[in-house]
């Protein structure tokens, strides 16, 4: 294992994050605050409680997941796409590293950034509402696994994308609707029975549900199934990347 190379890629990716630390830090704080103003104060004041939890607190796990998922994807996809775009990826291809090391460097950094932002949002949210975490260990585990899984998905998107438009395509057209319709801001029990069944087809629902369970012990689906779903998603992403590395698809000539 070329640990120094993994470290070099990881630190190089993180340095981009640190170069724009203000944007990285400030923008999630502002957007979270806005969500709280809109959903918490304006709309939330008209909603009593959801599953025995105040609406303001109820949306916190969904809000964290929303940002973490989007950040994991965008950081990882941009991280791998940008060197391809600028041509600097030749250096990685010519270095004494294997693809697992490249993956650990890029995905590790993307997941770290997303985790950091997730924690910032959690911190910001705690200013607005009282948050109790029933299962802190499970909460951290769900957060970490989600960061990793979606960073892997972002990595695939970054390899697949041939231009900046394609880079935005999957997050905008697929992931955003799935996250919003995955129970970020509501419980599926609030939906008519038919839509409750339809929502079960949304993989993001299982993540948000599991994450919310770690906070309030209320969930749309059993927590075991949530864990299984995230592991399944991780395995699919790893399988796809393993295949990409084997064939060198869109990486090597």
């Amino acid at each position: 294992m070329n640990l120094l190379a993994i470290r070099a890629i990881y630190m190089n990716e993180m340095s981009r994050f640190f170069r724009t630390i203000l944007q990285s830090f400030v923008s999630p704080i502002i957007s979270t605050s806005l969500y709280f103003v809109v959903f918490g104060a304006a709309i939330g004041s008209r909603i009593d409680q959801v599953e025995g939890v105040s609406y303001g607190a109820f949306i916190v796990p969904g809000l964290v997941m929303l940002s973490v998922i989007m950040q994991s994807i965008s950081n990882a996809s941009f991280g791998i796409y940008f060197p391809k775009f600028t041509g600097t990826f030749f250096e990685v291809l010519s270095a004494p590293v294997n693809f697992l090391e490249v993956l650990l460097g890029f995905v590790g950094a993307a997941a770290t950034k997303a985790l950091f932002i997730g924690l910032v949002i959690l911190g910001t949210a705690s200013i607005f509402v009282h948050i109790s975490i029933a299962h802190p260990f499970a909460m951290v585990a769900f957060l970490l696994l989600t960061c990793l899984a979606f960073a892997l998905l972002g990595f695939i998107i970054g390899i697949w994308a041939k231009n900046f438009e394609q880079l935005q395509l999957v997050p905008l057209l697929v992931v955003t609707p799935l996250v919003f319709l995955g129970g970020s801001f509501y419980s599926t029990s609030m939906l008519p029975p038919f839509w409750q069944t339809v929502t079960l087809c949304n993989p993001v629902l299982y993540l948000i549900s599991g994450f919310r369970w770690a906070f309030f012990e209320t969930a749309d689906v059993p927590v075991g199934i949530s864990l299984l779903a995230i592991f399944l998603f991780l395995c699919i992403c790893i399988g796809v990347i393993w295949r990409i590395f084997q064939t060198g698809w869109r990486l090597r000539d």
């Binding site: 070099a8 170069r19 060197p83 600028t86 270095a95 004494p96």
Partner: peptide
């Protein structure tokens, strides 16, 4: 082929690290 926003010195350190 260079990342435009990266720093010159850091670029050389990165290359060295990448090669283990």
């Amino acid at each position: 082929h260079l990342e435009p926003f990266s720093y010159v010195g850091a670029n050389l350190h990165f290359s060295r690290g990448l090669f283990g």
